[in-house]
Amino acid sequence: MKHEERNFEKSDQFNLTMIPGAFARKMRTCVIWQFIRFVAINIKMIVVVGKSH
């Protein structure tokens, strides 16, 4: 059974949310993609930190 099917089934609370599918979950720990996100998030954070000092 798919992960999201199992979790949607657990409760009404869970059933009314969005749950990431296998691809989205895989990308969260995909080292190559996450390295790109690491660079992107750092740039965004540096901008916000710069605006706050």
Partner: peptide, 15 residues
Amino acid sequence: KLFAESLFAERGVDW
């Protein structure tokens, strides 16, 4: 709210 609920549901944590 949408993202927090999503994470809780994905990880099977009741709230």
